[in-house]
Design a protein around this nucleic acid. Sequence first.
DNA 1: TAATTTCACAACGGTTGGTTGTCGCTGGCT
DNA 2: AGCCAGCGACAACCAACCGTTGTGAAATTA
Lengths: 304, 304
Amino acid sequence: MRTFVAVAETGQFQAAADQLGISQQAVSKRIATLEKHLEVTLLVRTSRGSRMSLDGQVLLPHAKKVLATVEQAEQAVRPGSRPLRVDVLNRRIAPAQAVYRCYRSHPEMNLDAVTLSKENAAQATRAVLDGTVDASFRALPAGQVPAGISAERLLDAPLELLVGPGHPLADAPWVRPADLAGHRIWIPGIRPGTEWAAFYRALSEAFGLSIDALGPNFGDEALMDALADSASLATLVGSGDRYLWPQTHDLRRIPLHDPTPIYPHVLLSRAGDQHPVLTALRDHLRTSGPRTPDDVWAPGWVDR
Amino acid sequence: MRTFVAVAETGQFQAAADQLGISQQAVSKRIATLEKHLEVTLLVRTSRGSRMSLDGQVLLPHAKKVLATVEQAEQAVRPGSRPLRVDVLNRRIAPAQAVYRCYRSHPEMNLDAVTLSKENAAQATRAVLDGTVDASFRALPAGQVPAGISAERLLDAPLELLVGPGHPLADAPWVRPADLAGHRIWIPGIRPGTEWAAFYRALSEAFGLSIDALGPNFGDEALMDALADSASLATLVGSGDRYLWPQTHDLRRIPLHDPTPIYPHVLLSRAGDQHPVLTALRDHLRTSGPRTPDDVWAPGWVDR
DNA sequence: TAATTTCACAACGGTTGGTTGTCGCTGGCT
DNA sequence: AGCCAGCGACAACCAACCGTTGTGAAATTA
């Protein structure tokens, strides 16, 4: 492809060969094999160079795009001047969606969303400090921000109740957190010691709920099936989460209000990091982020 | 890249090897060379398979995109079920712009814009008939449409006068075609016998103009320089043309009205061609095409 | 007509990339 | 605790590939 582009741009095999640092015969061979592979004629050989055939004209932009894409792929991992790496915790929750929307509205922004394999907030701060990632969405208590890390709460995800069609609250337009007292809420897959565990512990204490955050996660399918079948089981999800659950199992998302519990996502980054994409991401989240309702509840250890 | 994607998706080298039809050792070598080339670790080897490293996570979508782009490039030239090929005459004039806009607003449309090397309308109809291209923009007289070709006038490009700052008409808001009688109009590069020659002959006869369409084309730069320096020279361009001329040489584009001469672009295609992208392109041009003024002039041999 | 430039073909050699054979390691099972 | 199955890495070998040199045919230029 690279050879074809070189020939197409220079108009002759010899010039392309010089450009690529190989012999003219090698260029001839490469083009011949490419043409044999595609089973079309790409270049019309004349006595003083080569013109592109119709197929060549069609292929040229595609070939350039292939080269550009390869270049981008290499840039993405090459140390030094690589795209901004943002740890989004989990690809299906609000931060990932927000980063993706930011990328959609500013496609020129060079950023990659990744998920650190360990869920521990301390390890995330270490990853930010040593440059493994440039920024990380976490729910870090204000007092626990280590030196050298700047933290800003940029994304509040309101919680919603997810229940099956047979649940008593299935048809409520919205519910109060306090209404959930006495109901069984099951959030599997939360490991003790993580920020999630701390959040749900604070939530259950604030409203007197019984949240069952223990037990292994048997997968989304299992949780879906359990919710759809049970008339008493419920779980909590962030309103921005991209769970496809409701669509397939007739599950209902019920907003929580009065107050609205929010999961506070804090963006951690190296203090003093002036990376333009990072600044742009912060600005985007500050301005075009979803509006936060007035009457919210957040854990006490969150600032603001 | 393909090997990396296979390993990333299956989670182990052996499974990727089976999928690719090579040995596990070959996969190991390929990944090793890719990692050496990129100078990063892509996969974390465990005793029961491989997990992606952070760099691997970042690379995976890029690698998939590379494969998809290569696939697209091959599709674009592979005979049978390839994207719609539309001959746009010349990449800088109205049809190319219209096709490009259509592609921009419907990116899912699979089409390629090409330019047949010969400017002859008869050869274009032959290219459409034998399937070299699927459609072609031409200015074909209504009576000259051969059997098996369907022709529809879908794009009217109003003409504009292009003059240098010293020309007497340089500051006019608009001019009548008849006002140009007596002025010298130079349109280089028009070969006799082409549809362009026929159009400008008809135009000059209708309004008593003296259009100098002879002479070789010494390139856009030469024409630009000549226009900028001369107080008497003028040329005609389509209003949709993407000539960058005015910006660099302080040239002026003066619309023509009363009547507005239009260059009628007719889309030729095989009669009965039901290709969905072709239909969509036609619809797009019919609906979102630029509004044609009421009082227009077109050559007499055009239908409608 | 001679000289030059274009690309293609043929033969050769080094490098690459795939295969087989084998080992070290880890995690599950007995 | 100890064995075994499975995964991946390393080494050696071999063939195919790719680029090189040398050369030729065709067309343009002087």
